[in-house]
Design a protein around this nucleic acid. Sequence first.
DNA 1: AAAAGATAGTTGACAACTAAACTGTTTTAG
DNA 2: CTAAAACAGTTTAGTTGTCAACTATCTTTT
Lengths: 157, 157
Amino acid sequence: MTVDPRIDLPVPQPNKQHEALVSFWWTSAMLKNVSRRFFRENYSSEAHFNLLATLMKSEGPMTQNELSQKLLVDKSNITGLLDKLESLGQIKRNKVPEDRRSYHITLTDAGRELLAGLDVLYSEMVHKVMDCFTEEQCDQLVSLTRKLRISLIEHAS
Amino acid sequence: MTVDPRIDLPVPQPNKQHEALVSFWWTSAMLKNVSRRFFRENYSSEAHFNLLATLMKSEGPMTQNELSQKLLVDKSNITGLLDKLESLGQIKRNKVPEDRRSYHITLTDAGRELLAGLDVLYSEMVHKVMDCFTEEQCDQLVSLTRKLRISLIEHAS
DNA sequence: AAAAGATAGTTGACAACTAAACTGTTTTAG
DNA sequence: CTAAAACAGTTTAGTTGTCAACTATCTTTT
């Protein structure tokens, strides 16, 4: 029984700041891989789930541009994603009378049902993964990552 | 002067565990975007830099398989990446006498020079982004992300 | 020593994403 | 009021990555 080599960083870092950022990056690569496999097993994808969930939880309809900003992806990506989901009958593009350039995107019943199913599995997964974190640790993680977001926006946007 | 909408999470989360994981995910998406732009401005990419840096810091030569595991990407991805870097004269594939299936990958002088240049800019960037974190906060981030890696390996691999 | 299985790397098909150029529509400024 | 600028969404081309099937080599089992 050996220790998984992915637990510790691939190379030593020159100082604590580097170490913290690389540790974060490294973990996010792992989360990405886990997440890809999880959604793949459930015949979906991270982008798909996030899109449906964002639509579900938004108050009022969203435009593609708003979705693009919320989801931190390029708007051209949203176009393609919505094309697919529309053809699967999970969302609808509704013309906006006040602005003929835009669409209001809404979930169909099929979209809502699919999301409901995925949400159960997703919540189970989150619970399993995060169960070893105390409330205080969760709070710390939220606050540290929020700090990092602010810094990223400030120094690199 | 309004607050950047990317600071706070796109949708409210049902509990602290969800919030922590989503906050982490969200931040990692931002870091990814920042990182892509940073390396693109410097005529490189995250994958490119990570590969060179990993080779540089390894003791002894590495095989493609080892690189693939260190970098958490598929081995076929390493093949393509190395093809490009080899054609740019930044790395060399050296036949391994003891195992004729493998190559030992080494940096060329050109590769080392490029990396040295990138490393300066990268370190500046890390310093700028992480300067608002105290040592203690860096430690916390390292320890929380390490914990998350362990949990991800345990519950989802 | 031979057959079966594992491993290193490559290939090809594909998925997810970006960026830049484009179309059509709306807003703003002279 | 009209020209210029900004904006929403699409298209196209290119990048980065996966996965599965494949070749060649090495290891294990018997």
